[in-house]
């Protein structure tokens, strides 16, 4: 059995609970044998019954409760069953949790991790399929993380989660993805066709949030840079592989694991070389991550930047019907088509 992203996150939680008794897990339906709607917390309540608290359906209240726990020295981890429900914790996140440290003149710490799965492609429809992380990016005092499906070097989704739970002093929104859960973790062996370069933002002093730079091994220099995160990063990697081997179109793929505050620097020299960037996200296109990163690149690279393209979801709710949802969300074929055009 291959280790999946889900297994890795589950192991990360279990290791964190084991390492520090101040770590507490809260969430709806997280008790065994069910183990959470997506099973990320499976086994936790059995092994650490004192640290796992099943809760009522009270997202806003729970965000506040875990914030209070964090302000008083515990390390709570809150699961929000579907990312769509982060709208219910917006007041706590924006007006309370992310503000306390700065507003109180750095006199408190708030080590809270709120985990939640975003994303569609399962036919769950308009209120259970969204990628809402853009609502929380750029909120001062809030870190937004997103794991990648790699186990390369010292980092895996689980290790990033575990380290964050055990070491953060500030609130973190940890964005998982429903499709990514089932992906096998890619290792140096399974990534044999790729050159994988790990970079870090200079502000990430402890090098906790890797930025993966993927290019095809032995390939000529890339024509286009791609950047994507979450499940879309895997779609981009598949497209990158296919175009390289079938059409000799070579690209570099940059996958960040920290979306906010955003680390531009490691992207910059790659984009400076190709002059072309394709930014991919699963949320709706306007006023989102791609818009911000594209602007940052334009501001810093000036006329070294020749082309910026964004690929994202259409500006509608996420439809339930498979045919509609497929048309609404970015697909691998869309990435390939754009790369063909951009590299021409």
């Amino acid at each position: 059995m291959k280790t999946t992203v889900l297994d890795s996150l589950n192991q990360g939680l279990i290791s964190a609970l084991k390492a520090d008794s101040s770590v507490h897990l809260l969430g709806e339906d997280i008790l065994d044998p069910y183990g959470g709607a997506f099973k990320v917390t499976r086994g936790c309540s059995t092994a650490f019954s004192m640290q796992v608290i099943p809760t009522p359906i009270s997202e806003a209240g729970l965000a506040g409760v875990t914030a209070g726990m964090a302000l008083r020295g515990l390390r709570p981890v809150l699961e929000i069953m579907f990312g769509d429900f982060t709208t219910l914790i917006a007041d706590q996140l924006i007006n309370h949790i992310s503000k306390f440290r700065w507003m109180y003149n750095d006199s408190v710490t708030l080590p809270l991790v709120i985990r939640t799965p975003m994303g569609g492609r399962r036919g769950y429809g308009p209120t259970h399929s969204q990628s809402l992380e853009k609502l929380f990016m750029g909120v001062p005092g809030l870190t937004v993380l997103v794991p990648a499906n790699f186990s390369v070097g010292i980092h895996s989704p689980g290790s990033i989660l575990e380290n964050t739970i055990l070491n953060t002093d500030s609130p973190v929104l940890f964005i998982e993805n429903k499709m990514q859960y089932l992906q096998p973790l890619l290792t140096a062996e399974t990534l044999a066709d790729f050159e994988v370069d790990l970079r870090y933002d200079p502000t990430d002093i402890n090098q906790q949030y890797p930025i993966y730079c993927l290019s095809i091994k032995g390939a000529p220099s890339a024509a286009v840079t791609i950047s994507a995160y979450g499940f879309c990063a895997e779609l981009a990697r598949q497209a990158q592989l296919k175009l390289a081997f079938e059409e000799e179109i070579f690209t570099e793929l940059i996958i960040p694991t920290r979306l906010s505050p955003f680390a531009l620097q490691p992207l910059m020299d790659v984009v400076a070389r190709t002059g072309k960037i394709l930014l991919i996200e699963e949320g709706t296109r306007s006023l989102g991550w791609g818009a911000e990163v594209g602007t940052l690149l334009a501001e810093t690279l000036g006329d070294k930047l020749k082309q910026v393209k964004r690929l994202a979801a259409l500006e509608t709710p996420v439809p339930a019907a498979v045919s509609l949802e497929t048309g609404m969300l970015p697909q691998q074929e869309d990435i390939e088509a754009l790369l063909r055009k951009m590299s021409a």
Partner: peptide, 29 residues
């Protein structure tokens, strides 16, 4: 919006109540 020793205030109505519950639970824990 002040914090002094064990006193914390915030300006959004209601939001401090669940935080108070969490603090109480943390102290109990």
């Amino acid at each position: 919006h002040i914090h002094y020793k064990n006193l914390y205030s915030n300006g959004v109505q209601g939001g401090i109540v669940p935080i108070a519950v969490g603090m109480a639970l943390a102290e109990k824990q």
